[in-house]
């Protein structure tokens, strides 16, 4: 079975997860009333939250969606900083951000292609965006802090995501593996620009125990929780995503 036959149109499916729960509850109540021999009344129409996107799909497709959302986040920051570099940026800073933007746009568009091979489907609402308003990207310190935060997130979550793929075709996850170390390179590069010598520092690498020397990882749900306020007012539910091992 192809990974790409399950493309939900984000706008068209109105029964988001929360809505589904409300409907389920109403149905249960109806069943209870019928069982009690009472007549039922027509339930009131459930008001659909216009900003509740349909849940991320299950299986590999959901993982691609997740990676796509994270790539949107990184690419949006890198693009903004590359387009309007802080006045105190060095030449090196500018060159690095141009490269980061290029890499991340490639990742974002490749992931989009995984989800929509023909480039014909609106995967997200037209006004869906990663909001930059809470980030201060006009100073070097602010731009590097924001970029590092999301580069660290990407580096930390790919090792968790990669083993969750189930397709027999290893090629898509191999591409994500090839992107995984690029994310780690981005993180180390930004860390060193921000504070020299903070590559692979103790806040991102485990220092004790059997796993000492390995990257501290995050789950997709932890990352989505960080992303959530930036994608507001849209709400992304991830209850169908494969759970980390």
């Amino acid at each position: 079975m192809s990974d790409h036959n399950l493309l939900p149109a984000w706008r068209e499916q109105s029964l988001g997860r929360r809505v589904f729960l409300r409907v389920s509850a109403a149905s249960a109540a109806t069943v209870a009333l019928v069982a009690a021999g009472c007549t039922t009344t027509t339930p009131e129409p459930v008001k659909v939250d216009p900003y509740l996107l349909s849940p991320l799909p299950a299986g590999d497709v959901g993982l691609f969606y997740f990676a796509y959302l994270l790539a949107i986040a990184k690419a949006t920051i890198f693009q903004k900083v590359a387009d309007a570099p802080p006045t105190d940026f060095t030449a090196t800073d500018r060159a690095v951000f141009t490269d980061l933007r290029d890499h991340e746009v490639i990742h974002r568009e490749l992931l989009r292609r995984f989800l929509d091979p023909k480039g014909e489907v609106a995967l997200l609402p037209a006004d869906f965006a990663f909001s930059l308003t809470s980030l201060s990207l006009t100073t070097r310190a602010g731009a590097l802090a924001a970029a590092q935060q999301f580069a660290d997130l990407a580096a930390a979550v790919y090792p968790t995501v990669l083993p969750l793929f189930s397709s027999a075709n290893l090629l898509p996850r191999t591409l994500l593996l090839k992107m995984s170390s690029v994310h780690a390179r981005h993180a180390a590069t930004l860390r060193n620009l921000r504070t020299p010598g903070t590559f692979a520092a103790d806040d991102v690498v485990l220092t004790t125990g059997v796993l000492a020397g390995q990257l501290r990882t995050k789950t997709p749900l932890e990352v989505l929780a960080v992303l959530a306020p930036f994608f507001a007012p849209y709400v992304i539910s991830a209850g169908n995503l494969p759970l980390p091992i």
Binding site: A155, Y158, P159, T160, L162, P163, L170, R173, T174, L177, S180, S181, V182, H183, A184, R185, H186, A187, A188, T189, N192, F199, A200, V204, V205, L211, G213, Q214, L215, T217, I245
Partner: peptide, 28 residues
């Protein structure tokens, strides 16, 4: 070797966590 230890998910995870640490070293 990331997908070579296919029968051992915890070891696969470990390889996937070691991999980005090497990448951070290289970048540095």
């Amino acid at each position: 070797h990331a997908f070579a230890v296919v029968n051992d998910l915890q070891l696969t995870l470990a390889v996937l966590r070691l991999h980005p640490v090497e990448a951070q070293h290289s970048a540095h």
